[in-house]
Simulated scan of single mutants.
Amino acid sequence: MRKQRRRRSRALVGAVAVTAVLGVAGCDVIGGSPSGPDAGRTRASRAVQVWNRSPASIAAVGDSITRGFDACTVLSDCPEVSWATGTSDQVDSLAVRLLGRAKAADHSWNYAETGARMADLPGQMADAAVRRPQLVTVMAGANDACRSSVRAMTSVADFRAQFEDAMDTLRKALPKTQVYVASVPNLKRLWSEGRTNPLGKQIWKLGICPSMLGDADDLTSAATLRRDRVQQRVEDYNKVLKAVCAKDRRCRFDGGAVYEYRFGTDQLSHWDWFHPSTDGQSRLAAIAYRTITAKDPVT
């Protein structure tokens, strides 16, 4: 009887030990792949614990939107009103919202370039990594669709490869830096809003996004098809941004919020009626801030 009791006792202790080990493995926020009905909640919890909603420094990469192009004067950058790193009181940029006005100027850096396409992003990422920011913001892709013609647009496959290259460049230098990725804006809506302004249409003739904005008043089936093809490419780019970002647990996509935002004339530059105005820049900052500070990532 005593031997039988000892064997049952040892078996019970062993079972408890195994259960404890499995329980710890299932709750570890770094390792383990729990299964069962709570698996999804555990994975979501792991992502939340990894994400820091209060980064202490910011670097921005991207194109003319992040440079504040045409927001202050015609055909000129105006980085002080940038949605990402600007210091202007008119915008209340992401840097100001996250870091406070006193620290924003010294702890945020803007490496975006007017005219940049996704192919330029790896180089910008390399430059940004030197600063060792805790957060990098990405807004790129509009210029890949805004080409001289539909045929000249960046292919979806190349766009994906270039974005993956940019993320790899950052990760090799800064494995734990967080990334916020904004969706490409709805270019067709910008055309629809801006074409109501005669001055804007004259500026468009200087070469702003000809694939979408060229012959702005042409409503023939050929012109409509051209704009629809540009719009479809933008939507395909956004699918790429979402998919690539989803593979990195320290990356958050805006869920299409910038694409879906209904820019009106107040949010568009009164120089070219296409790029964001200071008010539009402020709206972009608000979208980014909501995404970055949210408890859970947008799915």
Results as ranks from 00 to 15, higher is better:
98 L>I: 07
82 S>D: 09
23 G>C: 11
298 V>N: 13
156 V>R: 14
43 R>E: 15
294 A>M: 02
64 S>W: 05
163 F>L: 14
95 A>K: 04
238 N>H: 10
54 S>Q: 12
183 S>M: 01
16 V>D: 04
35 S>V: 14
85 T>M: 03
298 V>D: 12
247 K>A: 15
34 P>E: 03
266 D>T: 12
70 D>T: 12
249 R>A: 13
132 R>C: 09
157 A>F: 04
292 I>P: 01
111 Y>G: 02
242 K>S: 15
288 A>E: 00
216 A>R: 01
298 V>E: 13
237 Y>V: 08
37 P>C: 12
263 F>E: 06
38 D>E: 12
197 N>D: 15
12 L>R: 13
71 A>D: 01
236 D>M: 09
76 S>N: 14
17 A>V: 15
217 D>E: 14
16 V>K: 03
197 N>W: 08
47 A>W: 08
69 F>K: 00
251 C>F: 04
139 M>S: 13
97 R>P: 04
76 S>G: 11
99 L>S: 10
277 S>C: 02
9 S>W: 14
253 F>V: 06
8 R>S: 07
62 G>S: 08
187 L>C: 07
207 G>C: 05
240 V>D: 04
149 S>E: 10
258 V>Q: 04
262 R>M: 07
116 A>R: 02
210 P>D: 13
77 D>H: 06
28 D>Q: 01
32 G>D: 10
111 Y>K: 03
1 M>K: 08
90 Q>R: 15
52 N>W: 05
231 Q>N: 15
223 A>M: 11
4 Q>R: 14
28 D>S: 08
22 L>Q: 04
